[in-house]
Structure formats: C-alpha cells, structure tokens
Write a protein that binds this DNA or RNA. Structure first.
Lengths: 209, 209
DNA sequence: TTGAAAAAAGACACTAGTGTCGTTATAATG
DNA sequence: CATTATAACGACACTAGTGTCTTTTTTCAA
C-alpha cells in the first residue's frame, strides 16, 4: 500500500519493521532469527524488507544503535536531574538495578540477544570493536558517577574509580550471563545483587542505608 | 586403512576425530564450525565421520562431557592432595586462577565456545538443563572448599558459603565474558582478579598474604 | 484522469549446509 | 590365500536460508 510516498511514511514503515524485528529477535535470539521471521512479523514482503535493510546484521545493528542512544539519554538525564544530585550512591544504585521501584537490572530477552550477537561475532573485527565501544562506554559511565561522588565527599578518596567500575561491569555481566543460561530462580539474582551492593558500599566507603 | 578392526582402533579413530574437532571448535566457535571443517581437520570422510557421531551437537557434547570429567578429576585431586590441605585459601586461589605459576584463569577459545554453545542454545530445554548442571556443579565445588575452610577455622564463621560461591562464579563468568568480547588488554583482567581477591579475603575473613 | 515514479511483492536462482546410502577397499580369520 | 564383515568413502538428494530481479500495484502530480 504505497509508492512515491512521503518521507514520513517511509520513516514509519522502517520503524514498524524495526519494532517487529525487535520482537522476533527477542523471541528467537540472533542466530536463529531469519529475514523470513522479520518479514512475517512486520507484514512486509521479501523485496520490501530488502528495500529498507540490506541484511539481518543491518537490521540488528540499527536496533543496537537505537539502544545505545536511549541508554545514553537515560544516563544524561540521571546525572542532570536535581533530585539525584543529592546522592551519587543513589544514582549508582538506580543505574545498576533499574528505577526506584527496586526493579531488577535491565535484563531481558533483548539483552541476551545482544550478548549472543557479540559472542558469536567475537572473531569478526568489526563486531569486536563495536563491542569494545559499548564496554568502554559503560565503564566510563560508572567512572563518572564514582568520580563525582568522590568530589562531593560522598565516597572515599581511596576508592579506585577505574577498578570499581570494571568490577561493577564484570559482576553485572556475570550475573546476567548466568541468568541467561540458567534462569532467575537458580541464580538467586536478587540476593546476589544485595550481596554485591554491600561490597560496593564497602569499596566506596559508604555507610549503607 | 581399516575394516573389521579392533575395538582399540575404533577408540583411537574416535579420539582423533574429537581432537580435531576440539581444534576447529576453538578456531571458529560453535555456530560457525561445520561438519566439513571437522572432516577436513580429522582427515576423515563425511560417511566416516557420521559413523562415529550423528551430528555436530553430538560431537560437541562429547567434548563437553570429557571437559567436565577432567575438571572434576582435577578438583578431586586438589582437595585430596596433602600439600593443599594446609590452606583452603590457597586451594581456592589455585582453583580460581589456575596453577601455582600464577597463570590466568582457565580462559581460552574452548571456554568461549562453551559459552557460545549455552547462550545460543538458551531456548533449548536440553541445553538449558545441561547448563544448569554445570552451574550447580561449579557452585557446589566452591561451597565445599569454603565450608572446609570454615571447619578448619581458616575462614570466618560468618561467611555465607552459598552467596560467596555464587559471587565467585558470577564474577569469573563476567570477567571471562568481557574478555571474550573485548579482549585481555582492555579488560585489565589481572588487575581485576587481584582486586576481586582482596574482596574475597575480606568476605571470608582471611588475612592476605 | 491519467501517466510516471517508485514502493511493494514474490518468484527465482544460488549457496551452504545436512544426513543418507550404495559402493569400494581392507583387516582379521579360517 | 580366500573369504567376509565392515570401516571408510564420496556422490546425492534434500533443506533452509540468502539476495536479486522482474512484475504488479499504488500514490502523487500535472
């Protein structure tokens, strides 16, 4: 239903395809998802789909790009918001574990698929460097928070921002990996997070709430 | 070179195939490896290969089984050896980081491939439960060491074996995952391990060497 | 209203893999 | 040395996916 259409319409179509793709990627994972899956979910023909994206990888990388943008946006807001400025410890916790309602970490099928994408592509130079970019970004984000907390006197001056940031990423990646493979119940995620939080408080020199 | 052969010869052939398979799996990862790769590396024909294994998954699972056996064997020796009985902290460290020569964790292409195998198969019920088995085994192993250390008075009575064991697995999995995706240099693995060791000593109530 | 531009469709050719099966070659045995 | 069971081989048929290309459909504009 549409030739020689407006730019807006094309944008919409593209967005629809991406939304459909996101769904099937979450459902089947990266490797098992095929262009056919996306076509069916998005109600678009083969030819139509290839008009917008040149390959499965193209589709997925577009989603990744969106994901990283929204992530940075969220981060930016977090650090700017005035309510959070009062406690970097609180900022750290919400960044780690989701929002105030004590939600779990941002864990879900999408994240598992991203993991899969980078692991199966670990021998591909391009994917590798993209993975590094994401990793570095995450580390830097935590470093920023910790540094600000040190400046404000909330965290101990002895805290090694870089190593603590890396520990956070390693631990969350690990819990998340175990969760992906083994499932929530068996990993006792919530308890592990609580346990790790104690350690973090210790390492940063914060008295726990 | 062989019909109506001895049982020993067949065992040998099978072992050769497995060795070749191990090599190509390490090189290409699980998904990208094909039966053709294994055939070529093992110098066996298609028909020959299928005489010993019914599928790629069959080959890989056999390797996994071997891996887990040698792992348990190593563990058993560690716990029985008299030299290590004197210090469970030492046992814990060598278990974690490899042997006395301060080698790194048992990290390599094989482990990345195992990771890949479980992640891409996360929606398959059989692989999932196999993954759980491995996870549970690892946790239990650490629990055992910690419990013995508590009995011997080397570790604090307050140490929560289960949660510490899980932390260890989560952290090592995380460092390992990051290493797989991003590479050694960028993850600063050695420093992270050292850092984590401090925490472990703290959690277990051990004075560091 | 009609013609042109291009969006959408889907048939097609191609590729890369799998697992099977009839044939060939050879090691053990009498 | 001849026989025979069977290990090993490799051609084959099949499947599941990809990306392309021609055809059809539809919207916009003159």
């Amino acid at each position: 239903m549409s030739p020689k259409v407006s730019e807006a319409h094309k944008e919409q179509r593209r967005a629809d395809i991406l939304q459909a793709a996101e769904k099937v990627f979450a459902e089947h994972g990266y490797e098992k998802t095929t262009m056919k899956h996306i076509m069916d979910e998005a109600n678009v023909s083969r030819g139509g789909l290839y008009l917008y994206f040149s390959s499965k990888e193209d589709v997925f990388e577009t989603l990744l790009e969106e994901d990283i943008l929204s992530y940075q946006e969220k981060m930016r807001k977090h650090l700017q918001s005035e309510t959070n400025n009062t406690s970097y410890w609180h900022t750290l916790l919400t960044t780690l574990y989701g929002n105030e309602k004590h939600e779990n970490m941002a864990i879900g099928p999408a994240s598992s698929t991203i993991l899969e994408f980078f692991i199966t592509g670990r021998n591909d130079e391009e994917r590798r460097s993209y993975g590094k970019k994401r990793y570095t970004l995450a580390i830097q984000m935590y470093i920023d928070i910790i540094e600000k907390g040190k400046e404000s006197g909330e965290f101990s001056q002895e805290a090694q921002s870089d190593m603590i940031a890396r520990s956070i990423v390693a631990f969350t990646d690990g819990v998340f990996l175990d969760y992906t493979i083994v499932g929530n119940e068996d990993v006792k995620m919530n308890e592990q997070i609580k346990y790790f939080t104690h350690y973090l408080a210790f390492a940063l020199g914060v008295k726990q709430t």
